[in-house]
Each structure stands twice: as structure tokens, then as C-alpha cells.
Computed example of a mutant assay.
Amino acid sequence: MKLLFACLPFVMLAGAAAAQNAAVTDSAVACRSVADIKKAYDLQAKSAAAADTFVKGKESSGACQRLVRGLKVTIEQKQPPFSCVRLSGDFDCYWIMGTVVE
């Protein structure tokens, strides 16, 4: 048990080193879960109206939000084609299409 706590700071630092500062290059939807962002893009490919309805419902519950161009974020994780980004001062990570952050 002692070893676990002794290693914890190193694990935390290793995770922090992987984070990368970035900016949103084009306004896009971002969701807390990979499943929601995948569904939003799947719906978009079939029907823009259906995707918009889905996203609006997720926005009202706080599960998704629209990120605007130029917004500064930190890329926490990548799971192509998506990246999970954290807004400055926020604890939550939001999945967004990886092509709109750099």
C-alpha cells in the first residue's frame, strides 16, 4: 500500500506530461462521452436536422457543448479520429473531432 502512494506523484506527472496545449481551429461540438460524439457525427452524416436535435438535447443536459474557433484547450487524450480536450480551469474532458484542434 505504501508503494502505491509513493508512486502516485510519478503517475500523475507522467499523465500531465502527455497533455498538450492547443486551440480549436473551427467551431465544433464536443461531448463528455465518446459514444455521444460518435452518435452526433453518425447522425450528421445521415441528417443534419437529426444531429442538431440530438446535440441540442445533449447541450441542455450538459453532456455536450459547442466549442468556438480560437478557444484555448489542452489535449488530454487522443482516440482517433477524436481528441479529448479540457478547457482552461475546467476538470472535465470533452471529446471533439481531432481535426479541429491543433
Rank of each mutant, 00 (worst) to 15 (best):
residue 40 A to Y: 13
residue 89 G to Y: 02
residue 51 A to I: 06
residue 51 A to W: 06
residue 36 D to A: 15
residue 78 K to H: 02
residue 10 F to Y: 14
residue 12 M to D: 04
residue 77 Q to C: 04
residue 26 D to W: 08
residue 52 D to Y: 07
residue 98 G to S: 15
residue 83 S to P: 01
residue 24 V to Y: 08
residue 25 T to L: 14
residue 19 A to I: 00
residue 3 L to Y: 05
residue 13 L to C: 08
residue 87 L to W: 01
residue 91 F to Y: 11
residue 55 V to R: 03
residue 61 S to V: 13
residue 94 Y to R: 06
residue 35 A to Q: 13
residue 48 A to G: 05
residue 48 A to S: 12
residue 1 M to Y: 04
residue 48 A to I: 06
residue 88 S to A: 14
residue 42 D to Y: 07
residue 45 A to K: 10
residue 81 P to L: 07
residue 94 Y to M: 10
residue 80 P to E: 09
residue 42 D to I: 12
residue 91 F to Q: 11
residue 63 A to K: 02
residue 86 R to Y: 03
residue 35 A to M: 12
residue 92 D to I: 05
residue 18 A to C: 08
residue 18 A to T: 05
residue 65 Q to A: 12
residue 57 G to R: 04
residue 74 T to Q: 13
residue 15 G to S: 14
residue 61 S to A: 09
residue 29 V to F: 01
residue 56 K to D: 14
residue 82 F to W: 13
residue 36 D to K: 00
residue 81 P to K: 08
residue 38 K to G: 07
residue 93 C to F: 02
residue 84 C to Q: 15
residue 59 E to A: 05
residue 58 K to S: 11
residue 40 A to L: 07
residue 65 Q to R: 15
residue 5 F to I: 11
residue 61 S to I: 10
residue 81 P to I: 02
residue 31 C to D: 07
residue 2 K to D: 12
residue 21 N to V: 00
residue 32 R to D: 00
residue 1 M to T: 06
residue 43 L to F: 10
residue 5 F to A: 06
residue 11 V to R: 06
residue 35 A to D: 14
residue 82 F to V: 01
residue 7 C to Y: 08
residue 44 Q to L: 13
residue 15 G to R: 10
residue 87 L to R: 12
residue 44 Q to Y: 09
residue 47 S to F: 04
residue 59 E to P: 01
residue 99 T to S: 13
residue 69 R to Q: 15
residue 61 S to P: 02
residue 68 V to P: 00
residue 36 D to G: 00
residue 24 V to K: 05
residue 88 S to Y: 01
residue 63 A to I: 04
residue 6 A to T: 11
residue 38 K to F: 00
residue 75 I to A: 06
residue 30 A to R: 02
residue 12 M to G: 05
residue 36 D to Y: 10
residue 17 A to W: 07
residue 68 V to M: 11
residue 45 A to C: 02
residue 64 C to T: 06
residue 3 L to S: 09
residue 53 T to F: 06
residue 25 T to E: 14
residue 65 Q to V: 11
residue 40 A to F: 10
residue 51 A to V: 04
residue 85 V to E: 07
residue 5 F to C: 02
residue 41 Y to D: 15
residue 9 P to F: 09
residue 85 V to Y: 03
residue 63 A to W: 01
residue 52 D to I: 02
residue 68 V to N: 15
residue 30 A to F: 09
residue 6 A to C: 00
residue 74 T to E: 15
residue 71 L to R: 14
residue 94 Y to T: 01
residue 47 S to Q: 10
residue 95 W to R: 03
residue 3 L to M: 09
residue 29 V to P: 03
residue 19 A to S: 12
residue 71 L to A: 12
residue 70 G to T: 08
residue 63 A to S: 14
residue 86 R to G: 11
residue 2 K to F: 02
residue 27 S to V: 04
residue 7 C to K: 12
residue 88 S to C: 02
residue 86 R to N: 11
residue 3 L to V: 11
residue 40 A to V: 11
residue 31 C to I: 11
residue 41 Y to L: 14
residue 77 Q to G: 01
residue 1 M to G: 15
residue 59 E to H: 03
residue 57 G to K: 09
residue 98 G to I: 06
residue 26 D to M: 14
residue 39 K to M: 14
residue 73 V to N: 05
residue 23 A to G: 00
